[in-house]
Design a protein around this nucleic acid. Structure first.
Lengths: 150, 150
DNA sequence: CTTGATTGGTACGATGTCGTACTATATTAG
DNA sequence: CTAATATAGTACGACATCGTACCAATCAAG
């Protein structure tokens, strides 16, 4: 293995390392803004249903959230127990179910977003907003690449 | 809440979302390149010890890996059971321990890096390497920001 | 129509990570 | 020197996630 190859590889490791740490730290901050027992992944599901519309099947949500259907079954149970969603059989497909938001779910999302934006507003300065905007294009390209090679 | 603020917030969500997905997909790819039972976080510990030098305490490694000391205790047990490291009492501090790499640990790291670089070499093209290099500076700045506001 | 293959969902166990609580050692204050 | 505090590590339980296995319903081939 040549030195050139080695350093190329190390650059990739460095990139994924930074991404991992940013993900971990941002998730931790987000978690502190949510009620006890509500995980960032649960918030992400509710947020997705508000933005993309509810009445979707668990497996479609799982695909959108990039988790397995097992995980989605578990997460939906948590959200259902909290009263944030309802899960009912799909009348058009005996195998499927349909997930719908409740008013409590929408209210939870509103409150969570207010809390999270307030917290990140304390932390993130205009420079960093610019940086995020600047890198988005490249990040999306890299995400798509990895997604295609899953 | 104004529309302007809303879109700013959504941009931040978008950024952290992309970061989360990239982290998840890259970790999944990395995991497939490692022996059964060896988690990416375990590889990261061994890699860190090779690059930064071993003979460190668990708590220092935990800080470097951005995990709790609980998690590090567990991970070190896995690595120790595999024979990749040794964990011995620190002769200079009765509370502490010192972690050292074994030859098997170094060999494991070499093999893992070869395997991972080969796999990513199949996937990542020069465009993407450039993109990673391009965004590194901004990512480091954002990571440091979050780290300071932990 | 019947059979085989595919798909949506669940059950169970394993694992990584975290939070709280605890022990043992070290450090500092008085 | 003694007492209070801080630090390193472990024990235990909780939880999100995954992989394998499984069931039920749909779809496709004949």
């Amino acid at each position: 293995m040549t030195d050139a190859r080695d350093s190329e590889g190390m650059e990739m490791f460095g990139f994924f390392n930074e991404v991992g740490i940013i993900n971990q730290l941002s998730s931790a901050i987000l978690a502190k803004c949510l009620p006890d027992g509500v995980h960032p992944s649960h918030f992400a599901i509710v947020n997705h249903l508000v933005r993309m519309g509810d009445g979707k099947s668990p497996i479609r949500i799982a695909a959108a959230m990039q988790v397995t259907k097992n995980t989605m079954t578990h997460s939906l149970k948590v959200l259902s127990d909290r009263g944030f969603i309802t899960v009912e059989p799909d009348p058009e497909d005996g195998r499927g179910k349909l997930v719908r938001l409740t008013e409590a779910g929408r209210a939870f999302r509103e409150a969570a977003i207010r809390s999270v934006l307030a917290r990140f507003g304390e932390i993130v300065e205009p420079d960093h907003r610019d940086a995020m905007q600047r890198v988005m294009g490249d990040l999306v390209a890299i995400r798509k690449l990895l997604d295609e090679n899953r």
